[in-house]
Design a protein around this nucleic acid. Structure first.
Lengths: 222, 222
DNA sequence: GACTCTATCTCGGTA
DNA sequence: TACCGAGGTAGAGTC
């Protein structure tokens, strides 16, 4: 990683046009070529950037970064205050927990947590307006579309309602019920879900994970 | 701005839980307290971060950043390789061109680009669920609600459908047609728009800008 | 402060 | 590769 502190002006032309007047900024160049220009205040995001893959051409006072899509970032250097390079090496990467995907995987594995007798037909069931998180069948064989969210909001209810509308057009699936499930569901979302005939089910992710671990300890050797 | 290159491990607990194993990384601390941790590759985004306002407590080998919302970032420093601080000063900020607002302004000026005979009634026409980008009348005097996006997605169709539903309640405006317009429109959005009786119109912003410039050259002295 | 909407969103997944 | 949805979205504007 190369870190340059410099007084510079910047022009970007690509998905939009943007210009940065002369000021002192940090220019960060990562090992893969990703370049970012940061100011000191009022934003965690860079002012300007160009992600890898790209081509960087440098002369004494001008850097030009361009990519295949025809985007171009031009940095004019007026004064270089510091210029250091460090080899950071590979990063083992981030370990995340508690996101929607884990919830979905967990519920795909054990749909009966949501409702007794519920069985999985397919995860990410495709429709022409996007995939339904989980398509299931209830104890009576009725199709159930399940939308999994980390947090249940009005958007999630709307999204599920759209899917149900689509699925109901398929005579092999109709009629279709809906369940919105999340770790916590906003009161407004519960109201809207009721109005739409959709069930809202809060689940305890941490509790489930624990149960999962217990089960693993019971049924497998680790 | 303070730049620390250090071998470190990081734990974040807040909107999710995340952990970074030991590795050499860049820790960037901006003047406003915003902190970001970058690796050297494969991402323009920081691995972990905490935006201002926050509180940073530092000891020799441990930094703890926390905020009011109960989020907490813990950095354990195993080896500090470099630690520099620069005062960058205020940044004059970014000048942009080509975003949704420009499209809207352009279409407000020349609504007939979308459909022959279309005239503007009002830009940002208020409803009780938010403003309609452009309210127009077609060649037959029928009200047309126009939603302008840089990119047309399902959300935009829903948004426009909600506005139309609202406007149709106003006997002075009903019946109301809808046009979703964007530089590019997703296939799913086109499907949903058709199902909702909404037209989807792609427009060429660059071409229009050029036409604009030509027109300016023809009709004004610059 | 809470809500809404845009974004050079970024990022990961899948067809 | 392109498209699509999620995000600790961030950030800006409005109420």
């Amino acid at each position: 990683m190369r870190l340059v502190i410099a007084r510079c002006t910047v022009d970007y032309s690509g998905r939009l046009d943007a210009h940065l007047p002369e000021a002192v900024r940090l220019i960060m160049v990562k090992a893969d070529g990703t370049l970012a220009i940061h100011s000191d205040g009022n934003a965690s995001k860079p002012l300007n950037w160009m992600v890898s893959p790209n081509v960087l051409e440098t002369s004494d006072d001008r850097w030009v970064v361009s990519n295949k899509k025809g985007e171009r970032l031009t940095i004019t250097l007026h004064e270089i205050i510091q210029d250091v390079t460090h080899n950071l090496g590979d990063d083992p990467g981030l370990v995340k927990d508690g996101v929607e995907d884990h919830l979905q995987a967990l519920l795909a594995d054990k749909p009966w947590i949501l409702e007794e007798g519920l069985t999985l037909i397919r995860r990410e069931f495709p429709t022409d307006i996007g995939p339904v998180d989980l398509l299931c069948a209830d104890a009576n064989g009725v199709t159930v579309a399940v939308e999994v969210k980390r947090r249940g909001d009005i958007d999630g209810v709307e999204q599920l309602a759209r899917y149900i509308e689509r699925l109901d057009n398929d005579s092999r699936l109709a009629p279709v019920r809906g369940i919105l499930t999340a770790q916590s569901i906003a009161p407004q979302a519960i109201v809207l879900a009721e109005a739409r005939g959709i069930e809202a089910v809060e689940i305890d992710y941490d509790g489930l994970k624990e149960a999962e671990d217990t089960e693993l300890r019971l049924f497998s050797i680790r």
